[in-house]
Amino acid sequence: MSAVVTVSPDRAALVAETADRLSGLLVELIAEQGHATVALTGGSVGIELLAALVGREIDWQHVHVTWSDERYVPADSPDRNALQARDALLDRVPIPAANVHELPADDGTPLEEAAAAGTALLRGLGTIDLTLLGMGPDAHIASLFPGLPGVHEAGVAVIAVTDSPKPPPARLSFTVGAINASDRVWLVVAGADKADAVALVRGGAAAELAPAGTARGTRETLMLLDAEAAALLEESGR
């Protein structure tokens, strides 16, 4: 399913508009099926988006969350996406602890074993209603980086990443298959430093060059941009 592109005038508007869209989706899903399951993302825009959900009329008792990737560091490390999400949102809303499904933290378990545990966790959650993704200036998503073999990993849902070009090097990440098994995939991207990557993705670059171009939801795929990130897109090419 081809991504639908929307452009907000600036970063603040992107965060506010995406928060409106997300809170509306959660309310709709809970009304229709009794629950909603979302894979969160890290990064500055992702965390700003979570903070913007505080105070919204969402029945958090019926929301489940996990993460599309995680840094393999101790549970109390400030590098953990989960810890940042707790500070921004999860510790500020009445979501049950049992509804927060963190990918494993580094407790001495070998990374490959942690990835297998992450795969089991994800499969136990069933269908993900929405996977949120950021995108790096190199067009990476989750911890799937250009030129690394993880973008082609098949047969599992969560992989071990040992050589991330961004620190820390050890990470856990959804595979492309896990991302694309989600009903909806939203890429939320802001900043002039992402404009080249956005253009690369929209131009149909190969997965090895632009992993973000592989992301597809089974029901919906959105690329939510601010004007700076969309600066290199021509109107006809959006």
Rank of each mutant, 00 (worst) to 15 (best):
A3C: 10
V4K: 15
T6E: 12
P9D: 14
R11F: 09
R11A: 06
A12S: 15
V15L: 11
R21N: 14
S23H: 09
A36W: 02
T37W: 07
T41P: 03
G43P: 00
S44H: 12
V45S: 03
I47G: 00
L49R: 03
L50W: 04
A51C: 08
D59G: 10
W60R: 06
Q61L: 11
V63N: 02
H64M: 12
V65S: 03
V65A: 04
T66L: 10
W67E: 03
S68Y: 08
S68K: 06
D69L: 08
R71A: 04
V73E: 08
P74D: 10
A75F: 06
R80Q: 08
Q84V: 07
A85P: 02
A85D: 07
R86F: 07
R86V: 05
A88K: 02
R92M: 12
I95Q: 02
I95K: 00
I95V: 13
A97L: 11
A98Q: 15
A98M: 10
H101I: 14
L103M: 06
D107L: 07
D107R: 12
T109S: 13
T109H: 05
L111M: 09
E113P: 10
E113D: 15
E113I: 13
A114E: 05
A115C: 12
A116N: 05
A116L: 13
A116H: 06
G118E: 01
G118M: 04
T119S: 07
T119P: 03
G124S: 13
G124Q: 07
L125A: 06
L125F: 11
L125T: 03
D129Y: 04
L133V: 15
G134T: 07
M135N: 06
G136L: 15
P137F: 05
P137K: 02
A139P: 01
L144W: 00
F145P: 00
P146C: 11
G147T: 10
P149V: 12
P149I: 14
P149G: 09
E153C: 09
G155K: 03
V156I: 13
V161E: 00
S164Y: 03
P165W: 15
P167A: 15
P167S: 09
P168I: 03
P169E: 12
R171A: 01
V176N: 01
A181L: 09
S182W: 03
S182I: 05
V185W: 01
V185L: 07
W186K: 01
A192K: 13
D193M: 15
K194L: 06
A195D: 09
V198S: 00
A199L: 07
L200W: 05
G203P: 05
G203N: 08
G203A: 08
G204T: 14
G204H: 14
A206N: 09
A206S: 13
A207M: 10
A207T: 15
A210P: 02
P211V: 04
A212N: 04
G213W: 00
G213L: 03
A215W: 02
G217F: 00
G217P: 04
T218L: 07
R219T: 15
E220W: 08
T221G: 07
T221Q: 07
T221E: 10
L225H: 04
L225R: 01
L225I: 14
A227G: 15
E228I: 06
A229S: 05
A230R: 00
A230V: 04
A230G: 05
E234M: 06
E235C: 14
S236W: 13
S236R: 13
R238A: 08
R238T: 09
